[in-house]
Simulated scan of single mutants.
Amino acid sequence: MASLRIAGILLAAGRGSRFSPDGGCNKLLQPLATGASVLAASARHMLAALPEVVAVVRSGDEATAAELSALGCMVTECPDAHQGMACSLVHGLRQAGYADGWVLALGDMPHVQPATIAALARALEEGADIAAPVHDGKRGNPVAFSRLHLPALLALQGDEGARGIVRNSAVQEVPVDDPGIFRDIDTPADLR
């Protein structure tokens, strides 16, 4: 059996209003303790695990687009990103519609390890329709979806993302030794 073509979709089009209420500071470009930006760490971990990563950015966000492009992501601008996460997700899926499945990740989760992303892709290759990482008995992000769920994913609206699909579907839980599946960057204190 030929292996499936699994693509990563990295969502990097949010406004980060909890991090910078006035919108003056792009949290994704802020440095972590390692010196890498939040976004660069997230993208590098995806690129280490998957051969293709589509990164979705807001229209006109040239700094974010340039950083992702330099790292090797296929960058696409979402003109309707302000309408919520679902718009960005649908936009990314349309760009990566050629794939057999997708690992959907958030640009503000730089601590997710490449091994976790690879394990989710492997779960799809072994027949899972949805795969989610589990650490200490609790589910986290990112989440992987097979092509079976493409129509439902493309129908998403608003700011909930794919949470409803996960809640109402059978999910293969993938045990990982990775507390990074719970850590996102919401405030400046999270950068430490």
Rank of each mutant, 00 (worst) to 15 (best):
112 V>F: 02
102 W>I: 03
141 N>S: 14
124 L>P: 00
74 M>W: 10
177 D>V: 13
168 N>K: 13
125 E>W: 06
157 Q>P: 04
102 W>E: 02
173 E>V: 02
86 A>P: 01
152 A>H: 10
76 T>R: 09
164 G>L: 10
117 I>M: 09
85 M>F: 06
145 F>W: 06
151 P>Y: 01
75 V>G: 01
147 R>M: 08
137 G>T: 09
70 A>M: 10
180 G>R: 04
72 G>N: 08
143 V>L: 03
123 A>H: 02
77 E>R: 09
148 L>V: 15
94 R>L: 14
79 P>V: 10
131 A>D: 04
132 A>F: 01
94 R>P: 05
94 R>W: 03
179 P>R: 13
148 L>E: 05
94 R>E: 08
115 A>P: 03
111 H>W: 15
83 Q>M: 11
114 P>E: 05
101 G>A: 13
78 C>T: 08
137 G>V: 10
129 D>Y: 12
75 V>D: 00
76 T>A: 15
72 G>F: 03
96 A>Y: 01
85 M>V: 10
97 G>I: 13
165 I>H: 04
118 A>K: 14
146 S>D: 07
84 G>D: 09
109 M>G: 03
78 C>P: 03
69 S>I: 04
74 M>H: 15
159 D>T: 11
69 S>D: 15
134 V>Q: 12
94 R>C: 12
132 A>N: 03
72 G>I: 04
171 V>H: 03
176 V>E: 01
153 L>M: 13
140 G>Y: 01
93 L>N: 01
115 A>F: 06
135 H>Q: 08
94 R>M: 11
177 D>N: 13
82 H>L: 12
116 T>P: 04
129 D>K: 12
182 F>H: 07
77 E>Y: 03
101 G>E: 04
129 D>Q: 15
72 G>Y: 03
165 I>G: 04
70 A>R: 15
95 Q>D: 07
123 A>S: 11
171 V>F: 06
74 M>N: 07
167 R>T: 06
153 L>N: 03
88 S>E: 06
118 A>H: 13
172 Q>M: 05
79 P>K: 05
72 G>T: 08
78 C>W: 05
120 L>S: 03
123 A>I: 07
140 G>S: 08
173 E>S: 09
151 P>F: 00
138 K>S: 11
127 G>S: 13
